[in-house]
Amino acid sequence: MEYFLQQLINGVTLGAIYGLIAIGYTMVYGIIGMINFAHGEIFMIGAFISFIAFLLLGALGITFVPLALLLVLLLAMVFTSVYGWTVERLAYRPLRGSFRLAPLISAIGMSIFLQNYVQVLQGARVKPLQPVVTGGFQMFKGDGFAVSFSYLQIVIILVTVVLMASFSLLIGRTALGRAQRACEQDRVMTALLGIDVDRTISTTFVMGAALAAVAGLMFMLYYGVIDFYIGFLAGIKAFTAAVLGGIGSLPGAMLGGLLIGLIETFWSAYFSIEYKDVAAYSILVLVLIFRPTGLLGKPEIEKV
């Protein structure tokens, strides 16, 4: 029981991180119908920028943890967004209206490029960070096994909930959100109505990158190590989350992230840790085969 509860907490935390990344996939897919394969790398870059920002603040003597955390969060979001924007501008925008798979292939190239870009600039070695947020609650301190709910997990879950809520409001209630949804429906018509489609798409990438940066920061804090390769796996799992929840659906991405986090955690806890990635891939395959619209996606009938 205690063990189960502990895994639940761990799973929700992990799910929060996946959910944040998944939003980027789902928003981009919704608006331009492409899988932004490089999004995992944006997440990885977010983690690196957070790492650097932490060290920098440490060097500047800002050691009050909540302040440092907030500053790192902002810095990472801003600088990672520029990467998100640039990727779209360089690798995807010129391909709009090109043949169907061109943007995906370009995205794969971009993903390989960014991985090696960070490897060249920051070295291939894993980067361990001393724990920044320490401590936590102990619950049910029973015989031998205690359930711990660390402050870090609380921070991760809280930040995720706040960000997701505000993003949902942003997209549901503002002109920007309306423009995005209009682009999803019919890009040509939206342009005719005087909405700057390019800008709307860019904004979508920037928003996705900002959330990925947050996820990167959380990942770094949670696992304490990063390297240039973390984006590949996390990216695929987050994409799986987006598909599971129903690609194009924002609540779907959060739900999917949560489920993938839980499934992965419980799978590793109760079955086998070696095959934990197989679990994620298998879910991806199964969902796409049996329910390509995901849990919350709208069914799509091919227009002929």
Partner: peptide, 21 residues
Amino acid sequence: EQFRMLAFGAGMVAIMVWRPR
């Protein structure tokens, strides 16, 4: 080795952008 894959990724993007076919 790393520059090899760096160039490779950039090349893939460039080819798609310049000659998608």
